[in-house]
Each structure stands twice: as C-alpha cells, then as structure tokens.
Design a binder for these strands. Structure first.
Length: 910
RNA sequence: GGUCGCAUAGCUCAGCUGGUUAGAGCGCCUGCCUCACAUGCAGGAGGUCCCUGGUUCGAAUCCAGGUGCGACCACCA
C-alpha cells in the first residue's frame, strides 16, 4: 500500500467535488439556517500570496463547518478590477513595449486591459482551488461585470439624487505619477529626514522682515498670506500689515489665526492654501486667494513665475540657491517630517486644488456606529471596534473620482452649450435641456466604490433576488485589518444605506502573515514564500492545518516551514492510522459496520452517533470484555474533543480547534487506543467486534471533525473507509456529511481516571526501563500491592503486558524480590525487579531524583495549606483538592523513600 | 502626537471566564527499523511566565506604572 501522498488525490478529489455540485448551497427550504460569506475579492490579475491563503483557508473552514452543520451555506467568489493596480500593470507592459496609454488612446487601452484580464483573470482562482476552497463557482462575480456595473450606477445616481454625492473644487491628494486624485487613506505617510528652511519675508513698508519656515520651499511661490497667533505679542502690531513675497512680489497680508503655534519656529507661518491642507482651511476662513503653482504632472505651473516648467525638485534647488545668495534664507535646520506617498506607486503625493466628485459620508458613517452600538455587527476580536470607531468619527468626505481609464466611468454628462450636468442611470447622448451634444465625465470611480457594494451587488442587487432574501446579511466577513478602512467601513455604510441592514453579522479580523522572523513578506526583502510551492511540497492539507493552527486571535502569523513539515507529518499520521484500521477490517465480519457513514448531512446525525451498535462498551461491563476500558475511554475522549472543536469553531478560535484535534488524533487515538486495540483484536469474538467497531466509528467521527480543516486527506480516507465497509461502489462524499453531534452521555470521568492510571503504570515501567538502560527486548516483571491500581491492571492485563512489555505480574502484598526499581502511581507503589539487569547505584540515584521532585511539590502544597488565610477564604473544593494533592505527594515520597532504603540495603549486600 | 497590540523553554508559539505539578511543535540528549506510520516509537533535559508595585486566600492570567519591540492613525509649518 502506498504512503501518504497528497498529490495522488488532492486534485482528483477537488474535481469530484466540483462535478458533484456540492459547493452550491442546498435548495431552499422553510426554516432553514443560512450561512453566507462573500470572499474579499482579490485583484483580478493578481496571484495567490500568503495573505490570500490564510484568508481563504479560514473562510473555507467556516463554510465547510457550517455546510456540515446542515446550514444552507453559500460562499460567493469573485474578483476586483483593482483600478490603479491593474492600470499600472498594463502601463508597465506598454512601457516595456516602448509606448504608453496616451499613444494608444483610451478605448484601445481599456480594450487591452480587458484582454489582460481575460488572460490572467482566472489564475488566482486556479490557485485557490489547489487550496481546496469550496466557493460556489456558479456565482462567481467581477466588479466590472454587467450586473455589478449596474449596481454601481444605481448607487451613484441615487446618492447624487440624495445630495450625498457632489462635484466640488477642493484640495485633494494628487499622485503626479499616476496622475490621479487619491482618497485620504490611499496616501501613506512615512517619517523622512528633511530640512526646515527659514525664509525672510520683508515687510512692505521696509521696516524689517518676518521669518517663516517651510519644509517645501517650492510651495512658497503660492503663498497668499503670513499667519501669526492672535495672542502673540511679538507680532500683534504687524497683523493687518503686508509683507512682500520674494521672487513673485505678491503682497501678502499678515493675518491672525489660532491655528498657529507660537512656540514653533518663529511663530509666523507662511500660508499656501493651494498646496497644504491646513493652509487651505485657513485660506477658506480668511478668504485668501488660492494659487496653484504645480501642474498635474508635478512640474511647476505658470503661476510659478520664472520657475514654470521645472520639476518640483529643480525648482526647490534653484530657490534655495537663490535665497542663499540674496540673504532671504536665514538658516536651514535638519527636520524629520511625514511625507505622503501613493499607496500604489510610492511616489510623493502632492496636495492639489482640483474638481472632483465627493461622497459626503458623515451620516452614513454615523449609521454604522449605531449598528455597532446595537450589536447588529460585532468585531472579532472586539478591540478592532475601537480603531474602527475612531476612524469613523473623524471621517471626511470621500473623494471617489479617479483620473484613470480602467474602472466604472462616472455616469455624469456635461452639456457645454447650456452648462448642464446630467447624472443618469442610462447613457446620455444629447442634452435633455438644449438637445446639444454632451460629453461624459472622463473620470472613473475609486475601485473601493464598487467593492463597497460587494455583499449585495454579488447577490443580484438592485433586483430583489432569492439570494438576497436568503443570504443577506452575510454571516461573517473574514478579512485582515489592513483593509478595515478601505473596505469594511465602506461596505458597512453602503450596506446600511441601500439594504437597510448591515452587510455582515460578524467581522472576523485575522492577522497578517509574516516570515518566521516577523518580517512582512515582500518581494524586495526576498522573503516571500509562494503558497503553491508549499502546496506542492507538503500538500494543501498540511498547509491549511498550519495556517489554522497559527491563526490565534490578535497575533501575527509567523510562517515557518518546520511547522508545515510538522503538520504534514500529522496528515501522514492520520493516513497511517486509517490504513491500520483498514488492515484490521480486512476479513472482519461484515456486521462491524461503522460507515453507512454515507448518510447525507440532510438526515442529520451520523450513524455512529445514533445507532446502539456505535456505542461500544456502553452495555458491556468492564471486565467482561478486556477492551471495555479502552473503548469507553476513547469514546469519552472523543466526546470531549467534539465539544472542544465545536466550541472553538463557533467562536472563531481556529487554533484551538486545530490543537484539540491534533492532540486527540495523535496522543490519544494513535498513541494509546490503536496500540491497545492490537491486543484487543487478538481477543475473543465479542471483544474483537467491539474493538473493531470502536476503532472504525472513532476514525469515522474523527474524519468528520477534521474535514473542515484538512478536507482532502479526510475525504480520501472516508472514501476508502466507506468503500471498505460497503464492499463496493463509491460512497457519498464526506463533504456533505453531518458534523459530529455533541455526546455528553459519552463523557465518563471515572473511565478517564482509570485509563489514566493504566497509562501511568505503563509510563512508569517504561521510564524505569529507559533510565535503567534495560534493553527493550527484555521483558520485565511487575509487582503490585492490592488496591485500585492493581485492580485496573488486573482487569487490563493483556494491555498492560503488551504496552509495558511485561512478563509476569504479581498481585497482592507479597514482598517484592530484592533489587527492585519502584515508582508510585496514584499513591500505590509498583515495583519492577531489575537486579539481574543493572546496578543498584543507578536506581538509588534515580529514586533520589524522584524524591527531590516530589518533595518540591509537597513543600508547595504544605505551605499553601499552612496559610491560615487560605484555609479561611478559599472555596471548600479548592482546599480539598489541595489536601488531596498533599497527601498523595506525601504518600509518594514515603513510598519512594522506603524503596530507596531497600535499594541501598540490597546494593550494600551485593 | 494619538491609538492599539505583543513580551512564557534554544527557536516559533498555545495557555478561553484568576486555583495546572506552566504546555505543544521544531531543535537537543538517550535508546529503538516493536507486524499503521523512521513523515515513526519510547524515555529525557530545558522555563526568575520582561521589570516594579497593587488587587486577591491565591496572579503567567486582573489593575497601574516602567522597559523593550511592533503596528495603525496623524495637517505643527
């Protein structure tokens, strides 16, 4: 039989799921529970990176989980046209061909971009399919497809009608490289080393000068005032007077405004309303002229006088030289300050006066805050809500027009003849007023405008579709924190405004994926790990398990390849466990069925959960069947694991689900249960049947538990298992099975404790063997005193014998032979004669170490119990627990001590 | 400047509502090809839970301050 080889089945199984049509939600039925997610649409021409992998794995875990819970589950896939990003890519292609978009013309450029989209658009979804995502591909959407474009127009026109979208002349962020306006959040600020130039502006009356400072000397050409604080005694007498702007010669008023900080620099500020947001506000307050000294391409404009046509850098250098020579420059300081740059091309962004379309979001923002107050939407983890609130409270009008060609063209037309502006749902060809020719606005909308509609536009809005009725609001949005403002906030606003309801109930914010040293992955750092390379090497399941196990809340995900290898090993472990079960089932009587497991989820509970045959040991008294303890124990542990897994997934604690399942699979099912089953399967017929049944049903339930996280290997094993059980034909898909139900009646603490005892006995013997360096092949004897420990061992003798590799087990108080190694389990001494195998000095040493360890614990318990305050105030059960620990430790210590005495005597005798 | 997050074993990290003898993976040491798995099995070493106070019978866990990282936001010229 071949080993675990994910390549062998992952692609094949995905194909089978596709063909089975099981990614689409089940048909609607009354009273159904709906679960829905819309994918954060990746850039249409992008390719899969780690962030996508994490984001989509988590969505897939949730979707598969809810599908198995029986919810009508929908996961809508789609892509974003990504305005600037995509246009830049195509522009770079053109540049490489020695041309540019202006040479091509708008129509040809857009056509070319569509071609590029057709070529590369499917790539990221091909990659996502390798990950195993269970999106409903029949509902795939693109932000620029016909339906979504219609939604965009509907929204734009409606908001315009409502007076919320307006065209205004305003100071906006301008990227000279992309030659477009940007919204505030598309500008990234970075602290940079710069200079502060102090310039002298002479007073008009020749009575001296005022010193002002600037970080951008070239903007001084656009100054229209000098401002001081109204309470500043140094300048009070100058307010109302005028200074002369060097170079230009413009007369600038000295004005008083409380914005000015008297303690900074000279306390006087040059005011450039055309190139600085603060100055712009002051300009409005004081009705100052607004001079724009810069062109859209970043060169100096005609208003820059002699410097017109220079780049800003050239202009700056020329001015600084000139002022240095003529004495205008007072001094230059080093100065760190924030410089804004374009989030797409990194070039410096300039504040520029421009005509743009704005969405006035104040009221819409407030509506979203109210939705949070009402608990209609919540952030998980909750602390992101504060970040969101602060931003929303300070939000300013959203500049939604972009001077690009790739995107939704703004549905506004201008009539030059009668100066009419027409905003319309339908294309306009002639002016409705004067019947003259019209021209459409050249600009397109911000990419995020259409993304903002995503939760309802993808479901067919503005039509009233069945999908909207069933699946809106969506259940949860899964995304990273870096687009809370870009996307989440805008969806909240649009969703509430147009649907009257929040777009999602929960907003699960996950971390960013970093490399194993915590560095952000980036091409320039060369630390990018390609998800597809990982999938090729370790399989999609191992990769998914790793991402899930790392996705602790509020934490960055530091991906390390060692961990991925570790979880690959886990998949291998599971694979081999199933192989073992299959092996043992060969030739077994057919009634030992577990997997009419082919029951569809629609019929609710799994067969193993609902048939009495699936309750191993439930009726068999322990002792009647030697395997009863283990069978009941693994069932009890399985029930605990179901509970943990469901609780974890219900509350987005993905990593806890992964850990609970890892532990159960490896440390309980494989390490102990399977090992014990090897003995039990050698027993009589009823024991065999019961064990085989438990072995199988536990595996079957485990596969269902693990499926949302590692869908491929679990599906593969499920298929083999049900084929094996049913004898022939293909079983139903695990994907459509029900998720294991809670089984509180399976929990049994007493059984757990008895099994713990057996495990401890085995471990103690193993420990003695290892520390005494007794070869594994040598079987040892075991002496036990009467008591509960002996009782457990007696009833499970074949297991104990095999697991600890024992020869004879002696019960009852008879004195153990001299030269024993001893240990204490649950207060009871167990002794292993070793004299013939090893020197007693080593054993004495080992015992002393054990005694020291116990004494350390004991002193802690004793001190605690001696504390009167503790005895007086701690709850009863805590005190009792502490007392129990104390007496157990005392007993263990005493037993070990007497063992030590014996060993020393024996050693002396020898 | 504002806000938030993080500091636990050599490394990467768990530790949910305060009571565990503080855990996992990798790495390390010892011994094993034991008939599912050497992508494995068994045993073991390794931790002042960043510092200082406080609340509490009891703090890795809650609070305050400090230190060190990190992120986001931000119009002091």
């Amino acid at each position: 039989m071949p080993g675990y080889d994910p390549k062998e089945f992952e692609t094949r199984l995905y194909q089978r799921w596709l063909e089975a049509g099981v990614f689409a939600p089940v048909p609607a039925k009354p009273g159904e529970q709906a679960f829905s997610i819309v994918i954060p649409p990746p850039n249409v021409t992008g390719s899969l990176h780690m962030g996508h992998a994490l984001n989509n794995t988590l969505q897939d875990v949730l979707t598969r989980y809810h599908r198995m819970l029986g919810d009508a589950s929908l996961w809508v896939p789609g892509t974003d046209h990504a305005g600037i990003a995509t246009q830049n890519v195509v522009e770079r292609q053109l540049m490489a061909e020695g041309t540019d978009r202006h040479a091509l013309g708008r129509e040809a450029f857009v056509a070319r971009t569509w071609r590029w989209k057709e070529e590369s658009g499917g790539r990221i979804f091909e990659q996502l399919r390798r990950l195993g995502v269970s999106c409903d591909w029949s509902r795939e959407r693109f932000t620029m497809d016909a339906g979504l474009s219609r939604a965009v127009r509907e929204v734009f026109v409606t908001l315009h009608e409502q007076g919320l979208i307006r065209r205004d002349h305003y100071l906006i962020n301008w990227c000279p490289r992309c030659r477009t306006a940007l919204s505030d959040i598309e500008v990234e600020h970075e602290e940079k080393a710069g200079n502060l130039w102090h310039l002298r502006y002479p007073l008009e009356d020749g009575s001296g000068h005022i010193s002002v400072a600037t970080t951008r000397p070239e903007t001084m050409l656009g100054d229209t005032a000098v401002a001081v604080h109204p309470d500043d005694d140094r300048y009070r007498h100058l307010v109302g007077k005028k200074v002369v702007l060097p170079v230009i010669g413009r007369k600038l008023p000295v004005i008083a405004d409380t914005y000015v900080d008297s303690s900074f620099g000279s306390g006087a500020v040059k005011i450039t309303p055309g190139h600085d947001p603060n100055d712009y506000e002051i300009g409005l307050r004081h009705q100052l002229p607004m001079v724009s000294v810069m062109n859209v391409d970043g060169t100096m404009s005609a208003d820059a006088g002699p410097y017109a046509g220079m780049t800003t850098a050239q202009c700056r250098q020329a001015l600084v030289e000139r002022f240095g020579a003529d004495g205008t420059l007072e001094r230059v300081d080093d100065h760190r300050h924030a410089v804004g740059s374009c989030y797409r091309c990194r070039n410096v962004v300039e504040p520029l006066l421009s005509d743009q379309w704005f969405l006035h979001v104040r009221d819409m923002a407030d509506a979203t805050l109210k939705a949070l107050d009402d608990g209609r939407t919540r952030f998980v983890p909750a602390h992101w809500e504060k970040t969101y609130r602060i931003w929303m409270e300070n939000i300013r009008p959203w500049c939604i027009s972009r001077q690009l060609w790739w995107g939704h063209r703004i549905p506004a037309w201008y009539c030059d003849a009668c100066s009419q502006t027409i905003v319309s749902r339908e294309d306009v060809t002639v002016c409705p007023k004067c019947a003259g020719a019209v021209r459409q606005d050249e600009d397109v909308l911000d990419t995020w405008f259409s993304s903002a509609l995503w939760p309802f536009s993808t479901m067919g809005w503005p039509e009233k579709t069945p999908d909207l009725a069933r699946f809106y609001p969506t259940s949860v949005l899964v995304t990273a924190f870096d687009i809370i403002f870009f996307w989440v906030a805008r969806m909240m606003m649009m969703g509430l405004h147009f649907m009257g309801e929040v777009p999602f109930r929960d907003i699960y914010i996950h971390a960013l994926v970093r490399d194993e040293h915590g560095q952000k992955m980036s091409k320039s750092k060369g630390n990018v790990i390609d998800p597809l390379v990982i999938i090729d090497e370790y399989g999609a399941d191992a990769f998914r398990f790793t991402l899930v196990a790392f996705a602790a809340m509020g934490r960055d995900v530091r991906l390390s390849e060692d961990r991925i290898a570790g979880y690959r090993n886990f998949c291998n472990k599971l694979f081999n466990a199933a192989r073992y079960v299959a092996l043992k089932r060969e030739g077994a009587p057919a009634q030992a069925t577990a997997a009419d497991g082919a029951t569809p989820a629609a019929t609710a509970t799994s067969p193993t959960a609902s048939t009495s045959a699936a309750k191993p040991g439930a009726t068999a008294a322990e002792g009647a069947s030697p395997a009863a303890l283990a069978n009941r124990w693994i069932r009890s542990r399985l029930a605990a694991t179901i509970e943990e897994t469901r609780a974890a997934l219900d509350s987005y604690r993905f990593n806890e689900a992964a850990h609970a399942l890892y532990r159960f699979t490896w440390n309980e099912y494989c390490d102990w249960y399977i090992e014990i089953s090897k003995v039990a399967l050698d027993g009589d017929e009823s024991e065999r049947a019961e064990t085989l049944q438990t072995l199988t049903s536990t595996l079957e339930t485990l596969l269902r538990l693990l499926h949302p996280i590692i869908p491929f290997v679990t599906e593969e094993l499920w298929q083999e298992l049900s084929h094996d059980v049913r004898g022939s034909g293909e079983g139903a898909l695990l994907m459509t099975q029900s998720f294991p139900e809670l089984q509180p009646s399976w929990r049994d603490e007493e059984i757990d404790a008895r099994m713990e005892t057996l495990i401890e006995v085995v471990r103690s013997v193993r420990n003695i063997r290892a520390e005494m360096r007794i070869a594994p092949r040598i079987a040892l004897d075991l002496w036990l005193n009467d008591g509960p420990v002996a009782e457990v061992v007696r009833q499970n003798e074949p297991m104990a014998r095999r697991l600890a590799r024992l020869r004879e087990i002696h019960y009852g108080g008879g004195a153990a032979p001299k030269g024993c190694a001893t240990a204490v389990v649950a207060g009871s001494e167990i002794a292993v004669p070793i004299a013939e195998h090893v020197d007693l000095a080593a054993e004495a040493q080992r015992l002393r170490k054990e005694i020291a360890r116990v004494e350390k614990d004991l002193s802690r318990f004793t001190a605690k119990l001696a504390d009167e305050k503790f005895r007086a105030r701690a709850p009863e059960d805590i005190i009792e627990a502490e007392l129990a620990k104390q007496s157990a430790a005392e007993q263990e210590r005493d037993t070990l001590r007497s063992s030590l005495v014996r060993v020393e005597q024996a050693g002396g005798a020898a």
